[in-house]
Design a protein around this nucleic acid. Structure first.
Lengths: 301, 301
DNA sequence: CAAGCGCCATAGATGGCATCTATGACGACA
DNA sequence: TGTCGTCATAGATGCCATCTATGGCGCTTG
């Protein structure tokens, strides 16, 4: 049995005639006759009583017609839904973002994404790198914005923009007067986030882990960290996009002498079929961040 | 798109693996790969994300799976219902019967039909010959029991049994003493049914229409006619199976000298596909009536 | 009443396509 | 590092849906 055959049945039932039904189906009349007969033999049921001037559905056919219509309707629904799903730049797009990036990046890119990709329903998901990778691998995310390299056999990534780190100091800190802050000096009283935040590791790496004198804040957000610094408990190193929030908290920001920073990348499964959506999202983000990159470069000169 | 393809989709979604799905479908793995790819291309939608160790349905596939399941379920329903409908000796069987036969034949054949053809739901429909033929031709009946020949290009019939006519007389009628009644004599004060009843024409033909002296009863049943005769308004000619009813009404019955009678036939459309059901019903009726035919033959000797 | 018309069935030819086996590529695991 | 399991690709093959041509049959019409 075949969906095509079922459509033939419906056509005959509708037209009450093989010739017209065949025409409606775009096939020749003999083909229709043969196919219907084969279907009747396959089902073991005579579907139509062929009369001199009429073709009338049998009782059995009437009993079946409901299901036939149902099957054809579902098939048409599949085609219709598939047509709607055909656009890779449409539909749900689950985007993971690390916590040290999300609060500062999302407000920047939400509007541009809506404008450039109106059919794409971005669903942000904020979590730490490892959790995001796990969700990505288990198909619970479509892509993720990370600050680490993760390319491997199953995951692919693309760099979107460079985000320089900044030294964040209390206004009365001894380093607050410097134009540039040396990473090693910062290490003396630096506060860092808890394990699991990639920013913690990167900050420590930038400052030379060995000289760690500051303390680790468990289960705290970058925002909390800023407030701790503002309260005079130490210094820290923040990603560039958090500069606004840091200034709002009353901190003094200074570039780092070694120009440490991180690279924000968009990551997705190697086999993810909606690569077009990933690329599009990545491009929108990169385009939105370009002014910042140029500003940073200009400031550095 | 094809129902087969849809079953493939479901198998892959269920097994999460091409190889096992192919095995479950009874095809080779390359065939499944090729077919799924073709379906994906036809739909314009990637259905599965092929990973190193896993095959995961895409979001689009999830959206479609409901309809896919629906279509396959309807298709299975078609097969299941067709299986039930396969027996031609099962299901509704609309049987037309003429009014001068139905009240006397139906009580005889109902039980044997139920016994011999338990799955056949006989729906009797009582009306005059022309109305029955009309309903038969318009597929509102599956077969009819008539007392006339109707074979033609579109209708076929088969004789079931011979039903002799009997003279029905009031007990005090001048012919009531005879062993045999001559049809011509009966004509002198015969009462007949209204136009449309085949029995009317056959009675008149048997008695010689020219000598009609009796009157016609409009819109009356054979039962009414019997009561009229019992009340002394004349004589009549009844079909053999009505003998019991006539005797109950107090009438005297006598064989006719020319042995006039009628042949009860079962009629159906030449193209009617459940010919087996027609034959079976006919045989049950003929078998049930055989004792009567033999009794009549024996009485005639 | 015979011819023409409309309809469905049949026959034979043809091409597309589903399927197979064999093989390749690739990642996982021991 | 080699072996295993998995999916993809390639080429061969055979079935079958489809076509055109034709026949049969009943109805209509001049």
């Amino acid at each position: 049995m075949n969906l095509r055959d079922l459509r033939y049945i419906l056509a005959i039932a509708e037209h009450g005639q093989f010739s017209r039904a065949a025409e409606a189906c775009g096939i020749s009349q003999p083909t229709l006759s043969v196919q219907v007969r084969k279907l009747e033999e396959a089902l073991g049921v005579t579907l139509f009583e062929r009369g001199a001037k009429s073709v009338v559905p049998t009782d059995a056919c009437d009993r079946l017609l409901g299901h036939v219509r149902g099957a054809v309707a579902e098939a048409d629904a599949i085609l219709a839904v598939a047509r709607d799903l055909r656009d890779p730049l449409a539909g749900r797009f689950r985007l993971g973002i690390i916590p040290t990036l999300a609060p500062y990046l999302l407000p920047l890119i939400f509007a541009p994404l809506r404008e450039s990709l109106p059919a794409l329903e971005i669903e942000p998901w904020e979590d730490q790198t490892l959790a995001l990778l796990e969700r990505l691998r288990t198909h619970q995310l479509d892509a993720a914005l990370l600050a680490t390299e993760v390319d491997g056999p199953d995951l692919v990534s693309e760099a979107l923009f460079e985000e320089p780190f900044l030294a964040a100091l209390p206004p009365d800190h001894r380093l607050a007067g410097r134009e540039l802050v040396d990473e090693a000096e910062l290490a003396q009283d630096i506060l860092v986030l808890a394990d699991g935040h990639c920013l913690r590791d990167q900050a420590l790496a930038a400052c030379g882990q060995a000289g760690l004198l500051g303390s680790t804040l468990r289960s705290a957000s970058l925002s909390t960290l800023l407030n701790m610094v503002a309260a005079g408990y130490g210094t820290t190193l923040i990603p560039g996009l958090a500069a606004g929030a840091a200034q709002d908290a009353g901190l003094v920001l200074r570039p780092l002498s070694a120009r440490a920073g991180r690279c924000i990348r968009i990551v997705w499964r190697a086999g993810f079929p909606r690569r077009a959506a990933v690329e599009a999202v990545g491009q929108v983000i990169a385009a939105r961040l370009r002014p910042f990159a140029e500003g940073a470069a200009a400031g550095a000169v």
